[in-house]
Write a protein that binds this DNA or RNA. Structure first.
Length: 428
DNA sequence: TCTGGGGTCCTAGGACCC
DNA sequence: TCTGGGGTCCTAGGACCC
């Protein structure tokens, strides 16, 4: 039986989320910026049409934004995450097997569902359901492997006559060849900028070229990863749907500062804040970490300023999920690598050697009473912060004024997750 | 003034062991 | 004269993704 995998991808997801609550943005050029209002991470079609590239720094496009009346929003992850959950939940009705691949896209297994009629018609019903139920526009690509499904989605998005749905399985080989010959190889999932350049040098320019290249040659010149991509392009499904989300093997929390930091006390506040957040993520997947890595750096874009970056891995005496232990280790690490005389732009922490909490190693000398008190305290903190808002209860070491905190100049209200910011309907 | 954050997988190379 | 070969584990770094 022909394998049928769908990739459902939200259009301009963050921008679509903003428009949902502010319909006046419809038809206008809109962008959403990364943390710190750094660069563009989501663009409306109007902005794409202006030729503005993804990840362009905001300060570099302020002039063009002014000329064209581009409206910029700071990112509002609480809103996007909530709407994403609604989309994914609705999509789960359409297949027994769903892999949520990112905040705005998921794979659905549709193999064998041809009995429902043409799969492209089915995909149109999926689109209508999401549009009606959440209000977010999506495109659907269908094919016999994940890499091809991604490509089909790309076609559905770019070529208007497909009406937002493209099913390679419903096309003849000749039709596909014509299509593939006209798509740049760099559009393929797994072919990044570096590989793209090298492939071009080898004379492989289009998706069709890539499909027909000898897998062995790709393996020798690149890696097994890209060799799999070639197989996937030929309809051989090498990548399975991963419907069970595995625990994270590393948990990172890092952020650029709103303004440069040149003193240890503020760096300490930032590192404690990040370690606190990382510990929350760790507990939410019921895991323990045995190490915490701390990382600091100056601004590499300021070439004239003295540059410094350093990281250090701090092993913990025993695996833990206690914010206090993790922060303590992180601070010790920070003090070892911190050098005065630099203007720091960013710090981060990474939890490593993560194990399930149920696999905590036991010893004869375990202080079970302390472990239980720690667990009770962390559970209470998490419950309060969930209910009253993140950061309601925190370590004093995280600082109160937080002068280094990120900029977020134009964030929309958290319409769906904060009582105080909920959307209002005014009767006239 | 101003350039994101969070992940995964693979590979190469060194240390170490027998 | 002549100094192996294979395996594992760890780490750093690269490439890619959204």
């Amino acid at each position: 039986m022909q394998r049928a995998i769908a990739l459902v991808d939200c259009n301009n997801f963050y921008v679509s989320c903003e428009r949902l609550f502010q319909p006046r943005l419809e038809g206008k050029p809109v962008v959403v910026l990364s943390n710190n209002d750094g660069c563009v991470v989501s663009r409306s079609q109007e902005v794409k049409d202006l030729g503005i590239k993804m990840a362009l720094p905001w300060y570099q496009m302020k002039d063009v934004a002014k000329r064209h009346g581009i409206i910029a929003y700071s990112s509002n992850y609480a809103l996007y995450a909530d709407l994403s959950n609604r989309v994914m939940s609705l999509l789960s009705q359409f297949s027994p097997q769903q892999e949520v691949y990112s905040i705005d896209e998921c794979f659905l297994e549709l193999t064998g569902m041809e009995s429902l009629g043409k799969l492209s018609d089915h995909a149109q019903r999926i689109r209508q359901t999401i549009k009606q139920g959440v209000g977010i526009p999506v495109c659907v690509g269908i094919a016999s492997s994940k890499t091809l499904a991604k490509l089909a989605n790309h076609v559905a998005k770019k070529q208007a006559h497909y009406n937002s749905v493209c099913n390679f399985n419903e096309m003849t080989e000749v039709e596909r060849d014509v299509l593939f010959a006209n798509i740049e190889v760099g559009e393929v999932w797994g072919v990044g900028r570096r590989s793209s350049v090298r492939l071009h040098e080898m004379g492989i320019h289009s998706v069709l070229d890539m499909q027909r290249v000898s897998p062995k040659r790709i393996r020798d010149e690149f890696s097994v990863v890209l060799e799999r991509t070639v197989a996937e392009l030929n309809g051989e499904a090498c990548l399975e749907l991963e419907d069970i989300v595995p625990d994270k093997q590393q948990i990172i929390c890092s952020r650029s500062f709103g303004s440069l930091v040149s003193n240890l006390p503020e760096m300490e506040q930032a590192v404690v804040s990040y370690a606190t957040r990382a510990a929350e993520k760790l507990r939410s997947q019921h895991s323990l970490a045995s190490g915490i890595q701390v990382y600091i750096r100056t601004n590499p874009h300021k070439e004239k300023d003295p540059q410094y970056q350093q990281s250090i891995l701090m092993p913990l005496a025993e695996p833990s999920d206690d914010t206090r232990h993790l922060c303590h280790a992180a601070l010790q690490g920070l003090r070892q690598i911190y050098r005065s005389g630099y203007a720091y732009q960013k710090a981060g922490v990474m939890l490593t050697d993560i194990i399930p909490a149920s696999a905590r190693p036991r010893t004869l000398f375990d202080d079970v009473a302390t472990q239980m008190r720690s667990h009770a305290l962390m559970s209470a903190m998490d419950a309060i912060n969930r209910r009253m808002g993140s950061g309601t209860l925190k370590l004093l070491a995280a600082g109160v004024s937080q002068n280094w905190a990120m900029r977020s100049g134009n964030r929309s209200p958290r319409y769906t997750t904060e009582w105080g910011e909920i959307a209002r309907c005014n009767a006239i």
